[in-house]
């Protein structure tokens, strides 16, 4: 069959798609490449070097910001994943809860709220109740917006799980909590791990909400990168960004792979 007759071939579509891929990835590739540049220039290639990585890792401010980011992400992830797991179990299993689809919708609705609105609202709310816990403020804010992200893969996994397995465990003399411990949670684990990793990355990468609620001394990595960029793009920024990018890609890929694993 000639191309012009093939219904799957639409003139121009492939070029637009290609154009999109170039726009999506060219900036990232340039950023990564110039992080290895031997000169200070962000436009002229002067040979390969790890100089900027060494500098970035030696920088006290970057270290502090990275430590803050990781602490926040760990606590927010643990809290968000725990809450999301409990919510998913309640909303998919508890027969007495009425209007479960509504609750499920409300739970993931924040994903559609513009982040700046959430940020302003959170700031106002914290100010109103006089909450001032340093990193604690950021952890609470992150926990809240990470819950929907953690919830989605857990819920998906739970919905794909055969409820009769839990019935079988109860039939074999397991109490509710034994069933949860021995059957539900182990089978749900890929979803939980996947959700936790997603939450971790979302927390690590967050900028707008963190900027609003961060107090002096609780600068995170994205905020620090932003402050550097305002002074001027340096290969050091590129190096830190590349590390963050690499880390995100690895975690998200793992999260995806684990979420897919032994889907029965």
């Amino acid at each position: 069959m000639t191309r012009s007759r093939d219904i799957r071939w639409l003139p121009g579509f492939s070029w637009v798609t290609l154009f999109f891929f170039v726009f999506l990835y060219a900036p990232l590739i340039i950023l990564v490449v110039f992080s290895f540049n031997a000169s200070r220039s962000a436009t002229v290639w002067a040979g390969f070097s790890f100089e900027w990585y060494t500098k970035a890792f030696a920088n006290d401010d970057i270290q502090r910001a990275a430590t803050n980011s990781v602490i926040i992400a760990i606590f927010a992830t643990i809290a968000a994943t725990t809450i999301a797991t409990m919510a998913a179990l309640t909303l998919s299993r508890n027969k007495r809860v009425k209007g479960k689809p509504v609750f499920g919708g409300v739970l993931i609705f924040p994903l559609m709220i513009p982040e700046i609105v959430t940020a302003v609202a959170t700031l106002t709310f914290f100010a109103a109740i006089g909450l001032s816990l340093g990193l604690g403020n950021i952890i609470i804010a992150h926990t809240v917006f990470c819950i929907p992200f953690a919830y989605l893969p857990i819920r998906a996994r739970l919905d794909g799980m055969d409820e009769s397995l839990e019935a079988a465990a109860q039939d074999l003399y397991a109490s509710k909590f034994t069933t949860l411990r021995l059957i539900t949670l182990p089978l749900l684990m890929p979803g939980i791990v996947s959700g936790a990793m997603l939450a971790f990355i979302i927390s690590l990468d967050d900028f707008i909400i963190t900027l609003m609620v961060a107090e002096a001394g609780s600068t995170t990595l994205p905020i620090y990168i932003y402050s550097l960029v305002r002074i001027g793009i340096t290969p050091e920024v590129n190096a830190v960004s590349t590390v963050l990018l690499g880390f995100s890609v690895i975690v998200v890929t793992l999260s995806y792979v684990i979420g897919k694993k032994n889907k029965t």
Binding site: A167, A168, L172, L187
Partner: peptide
């Protein structure tokens, strides 16, 4: 003191 054999067996896969 009653046990069930389920229609799709429902063996614990893990």
């Amino acid at each position: 003191p009653v046990n069930t054999v389920f229609q799709h067996y429902s063996l614990f896969p893990h």
